[in-house]
Design a protein around this nucleic acid. Structure first.
Lengths: 143, 143
DNA sequence: GTCTCAGTGATACCAGGTATCATTAGGCCA
DNA sequence: TGGCCTAATGATACCTGGTATCACTGAGAC
């Protein structure tokens, strides 16, 4: 089964209709290795309406098929998501995004919760840097 | 010396002029305990032009007098900043914001950098929860 | 006093996103 | 198969948050 088929099945199993527009958006999304904006998808599928692409992207986010990535400049991008809650490591040079498997801040949240007496319900975390291919060799870590 | 005077001095010492519009924006900002939007300031100072308020807020951010806070819904707010790099713990119920003194993710960044071979240059982190006053008593932590 | 230029504010504009609504079409049922 | 219901579509207007432009103003240096 192709990835497209599996997403289509996911949509159907949750009671959403599978239409040509949705297939087109999913196809465009699957053809992109890194992160992308709604406009990228719109350019690739000029036939689809703006509102439809926005709606479909939001739906795919809600279903956990896509996830949002906020870049260092604050701009909102999307990318295919394999898991539930996770964090991103974004290469500011080539734009590649790496998922981090575990929720790396769980321990931190527990400790903070104890210290501050806050009931911590959520967090937002992104890391920015340069991947192995893009980092200047021999240079140390800066953060 | 009042807080307003100290900010005014900060502006002057960095070669920026101190104008009535800037005094008004700083005054409006100082009168707000939590986080606020540009629109909040605009409502409080209807005499000041939109562009001027945006410019002044950006200037205050650049100078480290204000800092940006992204809330859970993705909306951009501002708040007074006492320090350089730090993170926020935002109460989703009453809107109060608590700074975290140290860069709590330093260890995490070092470990991630080692694991992933990324040269990590920056990160974005916010926590959301309920402060002691707002958390339902007796209820456990949900994250 | 005057001169310079940073700052102002009105305005137009832009980008990204949502709301509305008539129309289309997927898919269920008789 | 046809009819029907309603989710989805797409054109469009609109909203929100922010920037660019530009003529004008006034702070402050001399």
């Amino acid at each position: 089964m192709t990835e497209l088929d599996s997403i289509v099945q996911n949509l159907e199993s949750r009671g959403h209709r599978v239409t040509p527009a949705r297939r087109a958006v999913v196809g465009a999304v699957l053809g992109r290795p890194g992160h992308f904006t709604v406009d990228d998808v719109l350019r690739e599928e000029p036939g689809a309406g703006r509102a439809t692409v926005f709606r479909t992207m939001r739906l795919l986010c809600d279903l956990g098929i896509l996830c949002r990535v906020i870049l260092e400049d604050g701009s909102l991008h999307y990318r295919l998501s394999q898991r539930g809650h996770h964090h991103h490591l974004v290469c500011v040079s080539c734009g590649s995004v790496r998922d981090m498997d575990d929720c790396v801040v769980d321990d931190l949240v527990r400790e903070l919760s104890r210290q501050t007496e806050y009931d911590i319900e959520g967090h937002w975390l992104e890391f920015y840097g340069r991947c192995r291919r893009c980092r200047p060799s021999g240079e140390g870590q800066r953060q």
